[in-house]
Computed example of a mutant assay.
Amino acid sequence: MEILASRVLLRPADYRRSVAFYRDDIGLAIAREYGAGTVFFAGQSLIELANHGTPRSSAGALWLQVRDVYATQTELQARGVAIARAAAEEPWGLHEMHVVDPDGVTLIFVQVPPTHPLRRDTRN
């Protein structure tokens, strides 16, 4: 099997509210819009909000890496976004901050410090 592309697909209960959240509150750029959905750029991935099918709440989370989680927190707070869990260094070495979307999906904003194993070349 060869995977050619992938993205996260969400079916929000209130499509317009969720589009406004991801576009205006979080500040993601739109990759494309089609008659029944909106696709956002999210780093090396895409997040699609579908305005078709059965709305579903997800118990999952989106992991979104940023350069500076503390600056991201300040930026989101300035936009009026509620911070569910303030930015802090975790015991595993990452710096994380949580925001919850209108359907209860947790967005985990992550800063990976230069010395963290995720940044090291493990081929040696």
Rank of each mutant, 00 (worst) to 15 (best):
23 R>W: 07
24 D>N: 14
24 D>H: 08
25 D>W: 04
25 D>S: 13
26 I>S: 04
26 I>A: 04
28 L>P: 08
28 L>Q: 09
29 A>Y: 08
29 A>T: 15
30 I>G: 05
30 I>Y: 09
31 A>G: 13
32 R>A: 08
32 R>C: 03
32 R>T: 10
33 E>P: 09
35 G>S: 15
35 G>I: 14
36 A>L: 15
37 G>I: 15
37 G>Y: 11
39 V>N: 12
40 F>E: 08
40 F>Y: 04
41 F>H: 13
42 A>R: 05
42 A>C: 12
43 G>E: 08
43 G>P: 06
44 Q>Y: 07
44 Q>V: 00
44 Q>K: 10
44 Q>T: 11
47 I>F: 00
48 E>V: 01
48 E>A: 14
49 L>W: 02
49 L>F: 09
50 A>T: 03
51 N>P: 00
52 H>M: 04
53 G>V: 01
54 T>P: 00
54 T>D: 10
55 P>E: 11
55 P>H: 09
57 S>N: 09
57 S>Q: 13
57 S>M: 08
58 S>L: 02
58 S>G: 10
58 S>R: 11
59 A>N: 10
59 A>I: 04
61 A>S: 12
62 L>V: 06
62 L>D: 01
63 W>Y: 12
63 W>A: 00
63 W>T: 00
63 W>H: 05
64 L>M: 02
64 L>F: 00
65 Q>T: 11
65 Q>N: 05
65 Q>S: 01
65 Q>G: 00
67 R>D: 04
68 D>K: 10
69 V>A: 13
70 Y>N: 06
71 A>T: 02
72 T>D: 06
72 T>M: 07
72 T>G: 00
73 Q>F: 02
73 Q>N: 02
73 Q>Y: 03
73 Q>R: 13
74 T>D: 09
75 E>Q: 15
76 L>A: 02
76 L>R: 03
76 L>N: 04
77 Q>S: 11
77 Q>D: 03
77 Q>G: 01
78 A>F: 02
78 A>L: 07
78 A>Y: 03
79 R>V: 03
79 R>M: 01
79 R>E: 05
80 G>A: 08
81 V>A: 08
81 V>H: 06
82 A>C: 02
82 A>F: 07
82 A>H: 07
83 I>N: 09
83 I>K: 08
83 I>C: 10
85 R>T: 08
85 R>P: 01
86 A>G: 12
86 A>M: 11
87 A>Y: 08
87 A>V: 03
88 A>Q: 15
88 A>F: 07
88 A>L: 07
89 E>H: 09
90 E>T: 06
91 P>L: 12
91 P>Y: 13
91 P>H: 14
91 P>R: 14
93 G>D: 12
